[in-house]
Structures are given as C-alpha cells and as structure tokens.
Nucleic acid binder design. Structure first.
Lengths: 198, 198
DNA sequence: CCGTTCATGGCACTTGGTGTCAAGACGCAT
DNA sequence: ATGCGTCTTGACACCAAGTGCCATGAACGG
C-alpha cells in the first residue's frame, strides 16, 4: 500500500514534469515549478529522481530493460541479426503504437542536449547488458571478444537512427518499417561472427 | 598576439584541470580549485569552457574534426569500410602514440558518468558530420537515406569499442590492431550499400 | 493507547553557471 | 606623449541544481 502511494507520487511527478517541459522546453522550467505543479516539495522530487534530466529519461529507461529481456527470450539458435531485430523492434513498435504520448518525449530528448547526453549515457549500460547477453548466447567472452560489443553497439545505432528519423518526421514514418530497413543494412555485420563460424 | 595569450590561458587551465581531476576524480574537485591552481578567476574559466565537463572533453574534441577531415581526404572511389577505417584509425593511432597523456584522460572520461555523457553527446555531432560526408561521397540524401547515418554510427561504435578496450587494458592493447579487428567485423555492413549498387 | 517506522517538508548549504559592470592592457592615430 | 576604442579580466551578485540534516506527522503493529 505504501508501494502504491510511492508509485502515485512518482506518476504525478512525471506527469507534471513532462507537461511543463514539453510545453516550454527543458531549460525554461525549474524544478520548483514542477514540484509546485505536482504538489510536493523539492526535496521529495530528488528522492524519486536523481536529477532533473532523470524524470524525462526515466520515461524511456524501461526500453533498455525491454530490449534486453526480449533478446534473452529469443530462441538460442537464432542468428544474431534476427534476434537483435526482434529485441529492438518491440519497444520501437510500442512507440509507434502510442505516438501521442511517446513522440513528444522522444522529440524533447533528441532536441535537448542535456537530455540527449543522459539518454546516451543510459544506453551505454544497455549496450553492456546486450553485449553480455550476446556473449552468453554465442559462448564468447564478453570482455575478451570485440564482437559482442560491436554487435550490441551496431544494433543500438540502428535503434537510435530509427528513433531520430521517427522524431524528425513528426511520427509520419512507421518505426517498424524503418527498423526493418535499418536492419537489412546492418545485418551483415551482426551475422559476421556466425558466418565466420561456418 | 592576443590570440596566443588566449591559447596560453586555455592551455594552463586544461593542464591544471586535468592534473587535479585525474588525481582526485571529477566530482571531488571544484571549479574554484581549478582556477586557483591556474591563477585565474572562475568567471574566466567559464569564458573558455562551457562547463566543467568541457575542459576534459574538449581535450578529445579535436578527434571528431580529425576523423571528419580524414574521411573527406580519402579518394572518392574508395569503399566506405576502407575510408572509414582510415578516418578512424588516425586519431586512435595518435592515442596509442601518446598514451602517457591520452590514456589518463580517456580513462577519466570513460569512468565518469557525467563526462561520458558529454562525450557521447559530442559524438552525436560527429555522427551527423560523418553521415553528411558519406552521403556526399555516395551521392545520397543524408536526410532521406538511412545508410549514411547507420554507417557513421557503426564506425563510431567501432571507435568507441576500441577506446573502451584500450582503456580497460590500461593501454596494453594496441589501438591500431584493435581497430583493424573491429573493422573486419563491421565492414560488411559499411559496404552494404556499395554491394547493393553492384 | 503507545512506540516504531517511514515518507515528507523545511531549511541551510555547497556548487555549477550567468549577467553585469568597472578596471586594466593593448593597439592606434593624432 | 596623449587620448581613444577594443578586448580581456576580475569581482560581485545572483539563480538553479542538488545534498545533508532534522523535526513532524501519518500509518502500522503490539
């Protein structure tokens, strides 16, 4: 029950924050304004979010866990390019399905340097997780071999490129379609190891 | 002459900053300490650098311009994978040649979240520049086609992976060698467009 | 009904970063 | 040498992000 109350406060905080930030831009809104709108104290805000950037980036943070989980769930023998395509497709398709909410946030992040920086920093973590998962799938050493990190990074490059194009087109382009296109370009590198093994 | 004086102040600032930051860590050093060591005012510091992070990241910022210039200088008909390999190799080889100075800075950046974030943010700019240059070389539309951005991002993924491995090995591994290895994995994707054209 | 626990709010404080202005150094012309 | 713009700097005040600390109050269990 205390759990639910926490969730409630957190939700209200992100709601107020995203509304204000999307409306007036990241730098023009102070944390004091956000907490006033949400009806809590500034001190409480920083108990829920590590920084002003976090309240926005957190909103997309689940995607990282989602990609990782999806990759782990793919069948063991699947080619890396196919497994990664599916892993990345799920959250991107979700974006396309909820453009109303997702698009403003994505655009805000991609257009605000401070937010982009934090977002990319988070992605480094995703990349390490994906690399570890790939290494596990292929029986490689995540630290010694270059391939897992390269493959994870390349997949995330495709992810970012799709997100960027989707954002720039104001949601006009279909994320799922863009993802497929991106992976047809990138797949040869992702399967490089598997092909070498053959 | 005023130009040289500016350069002198800037150099002294970066020198003092890097020494202190490498010694005690990014968060444990305040800007006031840096400017005291350099003998200038805090206000002057922020006239030279946009942020505390910048004084470190700037140190590597030239690499971006270097990569771009190198790519532009490659022969027109060269395959993308080869052109990008050379473009990325130059600054990485320079790192290997000056490990004494470069390694501590790279390690500081990769180990400090705030610095990593700013560094990656800068790289987004590199990525756009490289994508534009690639599009120009291949007669593509940098905005409409996915390939240029994917290729630029993939090359930078290789770049980052090499940097990371070099940093983690405390400089033991040879950057030039790592770069070659990374590009043998990644090359198939980089040449995907060229092969399609054939 | 009492004590514990936990989230919150308020407050003081540090630090990064900016606007403003006056003072000094330099080059240049008279 | 004198006077005049220009450019750089330092000092000061100021704002906003973020943290440590402690009192308070509400929910929960005995």
């Amino acid at each position: 029950m205390a759990q639910r109350k926490r969730q409630l406060v957190s939700d209200e905080l992100t709601r107020s924050a995203l509304q204000l930030l999307a409306l007036r831009g990241f730098d023009a809104v102070t944390v004091d304004e956000i907490v006033n709108a949400a009806g809590v104290s500034k001190r409480t805000f920083f108990r829920y979010f590590a920084s002003k950037e976090d309240v926005v980036v957190q909103f997309l943070a689940d995607m990282g866990a989602g990609i990782h989980a999806e990759l782990a769930a793919r069948p063991a023998g699947e080619r890396p390019s196919v497994a990664l395509l599916h892993a990345v497709s799920v959250p991107l398709a979700a974006c396309g399905d909820h453009s109303e909410r997702a698009l403003p946030v994505v655009q805000l992040i991609l257009r605000t340097p401070a937010l982009l920086a934090r977002f990319l920093e988070r992605q480094e973590q995703w990349r390490n997780d994906l690399a570890a998962e790939l290494a596990h799938r292929l029986g490689l050493d995540a630290l010694a071999d270059l391939y897992p990190r390269l493959a994870a990074g390349t997949a995330l490059t495709a992810f970012n490129t799709v997100l960027q194009r989707w954002s720039e087109s104001d949601g006009a382009q279909n994320p799922a379609e863009l993802t497929d296109q991106a992976f047809t370009v990138v797949a040869p590198a992702l399967d490089a190891f598997a092909l070498d093994a053959v």
